[in-house]
Design a protein around this nucleic acid. Structure first.
Lengths: 163, 163
DNA sequence: TATTGTTATACTCTATAACTATA
DNA sequence: TATAGTTATAGAGTATAACAATA
């Protein structure tokens, strides 16, 4: 055991789980500030990313990927369509299906988001030197892959209170 | 620049910010599952932790520490009081102030939460060897302290955004 | 009858503002 | 007049269920 009973619990250093939650929230908030400046929400940014990677996805598939209800996807796509970033089009093969695509403006926004997120890396890892950053990156990648987490859609979308 | 334009953006490895958000969500979810089993929410667990460390804190101070409105603290303490984990008592010095304390049951719950969270460390860091865990722990501590994050305040299970 | 998408509705979480009781 | 706490209310976000169109 790392911290024997002799050491008061209140003085024990924060655990890895705690630190990951804390720093994850910090990173998420920083990203949210960025998307806010660009006029969209983090969730919408996530949808744009998925649309950019999976061409011709439909709303049911998107809902499944996000782990959310189809009714929520309706509202999400409504917003992105109104903003001019995405389009719906009925499949000619099966007219129940709405095929989703990015517009040119959507692709531009996606590129902006990626640039902003990349620029934010420095801010988030400020306080670490280059070697430490590389090391941290490798450890987090290892952990993420060991957990089987999907680099395409991350679990920030899942409803925590439902479990 | 780490990833030159030659490399397609879609193939670039996930950034540290993304990984922190992803793993932070995973850790928060695991913790939420634990608190659910114990019959409380992650936010309430966070309040118990603060009450356990700062004796005689009042509601305004707690609101400030949580970064939330005083009105929300009212509801939070209502629940913890009903559950028998915390008590309010008017200060005799200034009768506007409600002094908050843990009950014995509250301290017992706090101990249960700490044990459960400690047991969860292994689950969260599965895939890393002992040396890697120590290294990761140190890097995260350094980052958290560089960000000025409060080691007492767990961000709860707020919805984390996507990167 | 089953599936895709939509609408209607309700519930949870949270913040803002008005209010009370003390100072 | 200012402060600590409370209550009232509203808004955002999300889920469930009923419904429409299509298969």
């Amino acid at each position: 055991m790392l911290y024997p009973d002799v050491m008061p619990r209140s003085n024990r250093p924060a655990r890895i789980g705690f630190l990951l939650t804390q720093l994850g929230t910090f990173a998420a908030e920083a990203f949210a500030a960025t998307t806010r400046e660009l006029g969209i929400t983090p969730v919408e940014a996530g949808v744009l990313r998925i649309l950019g990677r999976r061409l011709g996805i439909n709303q049911r598939e998107l809902a499944e990927k996000l782990g959310t209800a189809q009714s929520r996807v309706v509202a999400l796509i409504d917003n992105l369509e109104t903003a001019g970033y995405a389009t719906r089009s009925r499949s000619t093969v099966d007219r129940r299906i709405q095929l989703l695509e990015l517009t040119d403006a959507g692709r531009t926004m996606l590129a902006r988001l990626r640039n902003a997120a990349e620029a934010q890396e420095a801010e988030i890892t400020d306080g670490l030197d280059t070697g430490e950053r590389t090391l941290l990156h490798q450890l987090l990648l290892k952990l993420s892959s060991a957990r089987g987490l999907d680099p395409d859609v991350h679990p920030g979308y899942r409803q925590l209170s439902d479990h």
